[in-house]
Computed example of a mutant assay.
Amino acid sequence: MTPSTAAGRFRTGTRPSPMAMEQTGRFEAAFRSHHPDIGLEIVKITSQGDQHRGPLAEIGGKGAFTRRADAHLLDGRLEATIACAKDVPGPHDRAPGITVGAVLPREDVRDVLVLPAGHPPATLDELPPGTRVGTSAPRRAALLKALHPKLVPVPIRGNADTRMNALDAGTLGADVMIAALAGLRRLDLADRASQILEPTFWLPAAGAGIVVIEHRTDDHTTSGLLAPLTHAPTRVLLDAERATLAALHGGCLTAASVHATLDEAGDLTVHAVVLDPAGGAPLRSVATGPAADPAGVGHRAGERLLHAGATHLLGVRL
């Protein structure tokens, strides 16, 4: 056992944003239901990504959201950390020795269009040419250029509630914005969605709507404590989507989307797309297979994109 769990105390790190604290509350409820005799300590860690207001590329991509928490985890100050799966960098972009120990049930994966308070409802098709659409994701910016070339994507930063307040105040630097529906629901702001963008044409980010709890790879005690919290179907979806990104050598600065689904028979389907940041035609692939092999199915989806020409868009070599 680690010193803290041996003493009946389990330390978990999380970002302090309202959205992060809501998902931490869901983890806390699940953990206490399985381990009522272990004291749970929530440690708030302000990430470099929370403090930086410029493009994430300037500070190393989305690893800026996990770097400080990873350091706390690896040096033993924490037993686990909580994060949105879409914000967790791949294994090639972070310190070794960290693994996913639990995966909570997936929430809604869809993105939504958000308008300023008091603005009449509208869809992306109905917005006038030149409308500035705020987003922090290369994926969303590339989708806008490909599907709605009359609109202008502009970069925005900040937590969801901060961006919403700035949008309403007219200080966001954008006329409207794209946000994750799951995030708005966590903040009780889902009614602000003017249009829900269906994933059949607006593919979500890999890991969208999934909360993961990570721990040190060699901490078998924590692994055992977290394992009962995992929602098995969501773990299959996450493993498939991450395998696709790994095949593409993709990270948060990659304009790529992956969406895995399970049908009633337990068959796994992975839809993947690599987007042209300049707005050209996207490349798409689909792979299907058994849920028992999510990594294999996801990897095939990624390989098919590479062989279809995605290497040119991604700047990687086969």
Results as ranks from 00 to 15, higher is better:
residue 108 D to R: 13
residue 118 G to D: 09
residue 141 A to R: 10
residue 133 V to R: 01
residue 108 D to Q: 11
residue 128 P to Y: 10
residue 136 S to G: 13
residue 140 R to T: 14
residue 140 R to P: 00
residue 117 A to N: 09
residue 105 P to W: 09
residue 150 K to G: 12
residue 116 P to M: 05
residue 126 E to S: 15
residue 117 A to Y: 02
residue 122 A to R: 13
residue 133 V to L: 11
residue 128 P to L: 12
residue 137 A to K: 13
residue 110 R to Y: 01
residue 148 H to S: 04
residue 125 D to L: 13
residue 103 V to Q: 03
residue 119 H to R: 14
residue 129 P to K: 03
residue 115 L to N: 05
residue 122 A to C: 05
residue 136 S to W: 06
residue 112 V to Q: 00
residue 141 A to V: 06
residue 135 T to W: 00
residue 108 D to L: 12
residue 131 T to N: 09
residue 136 S to C: 11
residue 133 V to F: 04
residue 150 K to C: 04
residue 130 G to S: 11
residue 98 I to M: 07
residue 134 G to C: 06
residue 124 L to H: 08
residue 133 V to E: 04
residue 114 V to Q: 01
residue 132 R to C: 07
residue 146 A to I: 06
residue 129 P to Q: 07
residue 143 L to I: 04
residue 142 A to V: 06
residue 105 P to C: 04
residue 98 I to H: 09
residue 106 R to S: 14
residue 115 L to C: 08
residue 101 G to L: 12
residue 123 T to I: 04
residue 134 G to S: 05
residue 122 A to H: 09
residue 140 R to Q: 14
residue 126 E to D: 15
residue 103 V to G: 08
residue 122 A to P: 03
residue 136 S to M: 12
residue 103 V to R: 03
residue 139 R to M: 13
residue 121 P to K: 06
residue 102 A to T: 11
residue 105 P to N: 13
residue 110 R to F: 03
residue 139 R to W: 01
residue 146 A to K: 03
residue 109 V to E: 14
residue 130 G to Y: 10
residue 140 R to F: 05
residue 145 K to M: 07
residue 101 G to Q: 11
residue 100 V to C: 15
residue 129 P to R: 10
residue 109 V to M: 02
residue 108 D to C: 12
residue 133 V to C: 05
residue 126 E to H: 15
residue 105 P to T: 05
residue 129 P to V: 07
residue 106 R to L: 12
residue 121 P to W: 06
residue 136 S to T: 07
residue 98 I to Q: 01
residue 144 L to I: 02
residue 131 T to D: 09
residue 129 P to L: 05
residue 146 A to C: 11
residue 126 E to I: 02
residue 125 D to R: 14
residue 140 R to C: 14
residue 148 H to K: 10
residue 115 L to V: 05
residue 114 V to F: 03
residue 123 T to A: 11
residue 135 T to D: 00
residue 107 E to Q: 15
residue 143 L to D: 01
residue 112 V to L: 01
residue 102 A to Y: 10
residue 146 A to Q: 08
residue 143 L to A: 10
residue 130 G to T: 09
residue 107 E to V: 08
residue 100 V to G: 09
residue 123 T to E: 06
residue 141 A to T: 02
residue 144 L to C: 03
residue 119 H to V: 12
residue 113 L to Y: 05
residue 101 G to K: 05
residue 100 V to T: 15
residue 136 S to Y: 09
residue 148 H to V: 04
residue 102 A to L: 09
residue 105 P to K: 09
residue 111 D to W: 04
residue 145 K to E: 00
residue 149 P to D: 04
residue 149 P to F: 07
residue 148 H to L: 05
residue 105 P to V: 04
residue 147 L to Q: 15
residue 133 V to G: 01
residue 114 V to S: 01
residue 147 L to N: 03
residue 141 A to M: 11
residue 109 V to W: 02
residue 122 A to T: 10
residue 119 H to S: 15
residue 137 A to Q: 12
residue 150 K to T: 15
